[in-house]
Design a protein around this nucleic acid. Structure first.
Lengths: 341, 341
DNA sequence: CTGAAAGCGCTAACAC
DNA sequence: GTGTTAGCGCTTTCAG
């Protein structure tokens, strides 16, 4: 194949210096007061021969890569997949490329990935963090790379931005809805996780049970189980708690496993048991009966995340201020919570 | 933060030359007959100070990046999301990093992404190609970058590998199943697309209708519609074809839209209409009634794709042979195709 | 066995 | 306004 031309080739061909070419290509012609005529001549030639600067060389020289690292829990989770797609589109428009990875909520794996990203001179990070990476994130920020967290927060990381939803309030509102529909004995299935968003969802449940004078029935499913295992755990929870008349699932996939469990036990929704799930899913709309859920504003989250990061990327100095953006969710009432008939 | 150390720093500190350090770090000590004692000393020091080679500089010098570019139709599609995750894990184990992007089946966007990947000196490509990028792929291969296609094929691209499923046979088998269940008037909803896999699925349908002496009823939904639009088109198709007793959907999301359409029309599955969908989905198992589907072997596809690419990456010269791996699908019979009662 | 040194392609300080 | 040139950090040829 035709060898890649370099900036030298094009400078030589035009009998000018590489500096001039470089300035023109980087849009600093005006600033350097290079004649319009020359600028045009260079641009035209570059276009003609299809010259593309070598990004690697540029990055090596400038220390910038125009790449944003995105770390989600799992790209196979629709919530994260959709966020990823929206962020990617948006980043593209701003000249940034996204490179993503799934953490699988594995602290060690996450640390590794961060170190790889760092090696590649990623300019900024968007992370749905697993537990235990406060130190790494702090060090990233200290060394000048902006980091925006989303979905869950990390405490005590100066200068980190965050975009999330008001989990406590969301679950509380959902619980209130169930109570108003006449449910009196509501269980809560969550993950055995210390991540902030999971804790918040639990607090929302506790707040509601306290306020409405309900008994608490919490099941904490342990992390990173196979989905069969999760179903089994929920089945046994439901068997133990025969008097539950409704159940709230703290995540998308807990909800799906919950539906399996309920089906397995032959319980009727919403007569035998009311169902509410945090985080919406196409399945919930189409399921029979349709499942009431708390939908997160995916577009808004993506927009906020990327614009926050771009803002940080723009400003030179490190700003130790944290920015926290908390968005509202939407309770989508469907058939699964319409009370005991 | 502490400045990154370079290979020079470590050479200086140990009073040896950078060459030696480089050789040792790249595992060429034996070959260069460097004393074990020295090797160990260097390795120990490197470990101690946590030195990491600058990947950018290395790439600039060697022209290799250890990055594989992965192009899927949409990362929000569960089929692709799962494949992406599996491929990523596997690539990691082999020292490669994946960078992915969604094409949205947009030829122009895809060309752009390819050019960006190329700029970044991506070592190899895994692509679920949209139509019309034969030229770009050919040029990629000619310039020495291996390309593995999956899900759909591109004709006339020498040296490109492919991993896919036997779509014709799969749909044919599905049709046969419907016929055996007593369905006689089977419609086929597909995409208005020339992509090879879509054409194959259509051929499977045509082959079956011919063999079983059925009338053809094909609806080609046009590309890149909103899901509301797709539902509308399917609704009007079903209204026009009142005498259909079963329907086959050629993709995952057509199937989901189809279920919406059927619900909207108040038709009962499987009594009023039998349903079969190509490509499985969690939804299909949980839907009431559960939906019969043709499942693709996601793990096998991912394994084959990555091992094919790694093989190519290993061999130096360009091999103009194509390798085509065709895998079997699995017909998962559920309630939606159990015949008219 | 080890070291000197020539780049990979680009940017930008500095000189004119 | 434009050219010279010193690196960015690494690999690798060639000479001892």
């Amino acid at each position: 194949m035709k060898r890649k031309l370099s900036i030298i080739d094009i400078a030589k061909h035009l009998n000018i210096s590489t500096t001039t070419v470089s300035f023109i290509l980087n849009g600093r012609a005006k600033e350097k007061r290079i004649s319009d005529e020359l600028v045009e001549r260079v641009l035209k030639f570059v276009e003609e021969v299809g010259y593309k600067p070598n990004v690697l060389a540029r990055s090596l020289r400038t220390g910038k890569s125009n790449i944003i690292g995105l770390l989600v829990e799992s790209i196979a989770n629709p919530f994260f997949a959709n966020i990823a797609r929206l962020i990617e589109n948006n980043a593209y428009k701003n000249g940034y490329k996204i490179i993503y990875s799934s953490t699988e909520n594995d602290t060690e794996k996450t640390k590794q990935i961060l170190s790889i990203f760092r090696e590649r001179h990623v300019d900024g990070y968007i992370i749905a963090p697993p537990e235990g990476i406060e130190e790494e994130v702090t060090s990233l920020i200290k060394s000048g790379s902006p980091v925006v967290l989303f979905d869950r927060f990390l405490e005590n990381v100066p200068g980190v931005d965050f975009v999330g939803v008001n989990s406590v309030q969301s679950i509380y509102t959902g619980m209130k809805h169930l109570v108003l529909e006449g449910y009196k004995n509501i269980g809560f299935v969550t993950l055995d996780s210390l991540q902030s968003q999971m804790q918040d969802r639990l607090h929302g449940y506790e707040q509601a049970t306290a306020e409405f004078k309900l008994t608490e029935h919490v099941k904490e499913v342990s992390y990173n189980q196979s989905s069969e295992n999760i179903v089994r755990q929920i089945v046994s929870f439901l068997k133990r708690k025969r008097d539950l008349d409704a159940i709230v699932f703290a995540t998308n996939y807990l909800g799906i496993s919950g539906l399996r469990a309920i089906k397995e036990l032959g319980l009727k929704i919403p007569e035998d048991i009311g169902v509410l799930v945090f985080d919406d899913n196409e399945l919930f709309e189409l399921y029979t009966p349709s499942i009431t859920s708390i939908a997160q504003p995916i577009e808004k989250i993506s927009d906020q995340v990327i614009s926050l990061l771009l803002k940080r990327l723009d400003q030179q100095e490190i700003d130790p201020q944290n920015e926290r953006i908390i968005l509202d969710t939407e309770l989508t009432v469907r058939d699964s919570s319409s009370g005991r008939k």
